[in-house]
Design a protein around this nucleic acid. Structure first.
Length: 213
DNA sequence: TTAATGATTCACT
DNA sequence: GTGAATCATTAAT
């Protein structure tokens, strides 16, 4: 049961139902170094065009077009000049909602993950944060739009796994999200898990160039 | 331990 | 031109 792939129906629901339900699931990434498996411990929901924190808030663009497509596909974006982040698109199609995969525990293929995460001092830091997770699993824009329901042999898929008891699922404000959507408790994590990333409030960035004062 | 800051490319306005 | 769903490093406590 635990190794049964999640069906398309799983993702074809409200993102606020899918996000907490993804905790404890198994993400499988087939790399050139072999399979890497990850137990999801932290996620965030982004509710499409009604959510100021979502990339889809200002409508469809070349970058976010996958979010407007069918559920169960991956949405990968590039940010801060060097990092990638991995999302799973939720339904219904056209809602442009998705779940950001923020952290997890590498259960298979830690050796392959370490090769890409040389700064990690402990294995629990391999995927402790969304950009670290993407780096550890060798995820970049080439995987944008990948269908995770394609089944075994696909570059990316999600298995049933072992979800935690309901009372171990916590929720709170999303990390690094400012503006009107900042207060929504749309971040979900497994209570007490050592691979969950630390919360960081949104900080407006100062201009690089420009005069003193 | 926590807080502050530079890195570095791309998409969008 | 501006700012970004972040990370690694350094400095301060």
């Amino acid at each position: 049961m635990a190794r049964t792939p999640l069906p398309r129906d799983f993702f074809d629901r409200s993102v606020l139902d899918v996000a907490p339900d993804l905790l404890g699931r198994t993400l499988v990434r087939l790399t050139e170094d072999g399979p890497i498996e990850l137990r999801l411990t932290e996620v965030e929901a982004y509710a499409g065009e009604i959510d100021p924190g979502s990339h889809a808030f200002r409508g469809r663009t070349a970058r976010n077009s996958v979010m407007f497509g069918p559920p169960g596909h991956s949405y990968v974006y590039f940010t801060y000049g060097m990092w990638h982040c991995l999302n799973l698109v939720c339904g219904p199609e056209g809602m442009a909602s998705g779940v950001l995969l923020r952290a997890g525990e590498i259960t298979v293929g830690a050796e392959a993950a370490r090769k890409r995460r040389l700064s990690a001092r402990h294995d629990r830091e391999l995927a402790k944060g969304p950009a670290r997770l993407a780096t550890a699993l060798d995820v970049d824009r080439r995987l944008d739009g990948t269908d995770t329901i394609a089944g075994a042999g696909g570059a990316l898929s999600v298995l049933h796994g072992t979800p935690p008891p309901r009372d171990q699922v916590c929720s709170g404000p999303r990390t690094g999200v400012g503006g009107d959507g900042a207060h929504q408790p749309w971040r979900f994590w497994i209570d007490g898990d050592p691979t969950v990333s630390p919360y960081r409030a949104h900080v407006p960035r100062r201009r690089r160039t420009g005069s003193a004062t």
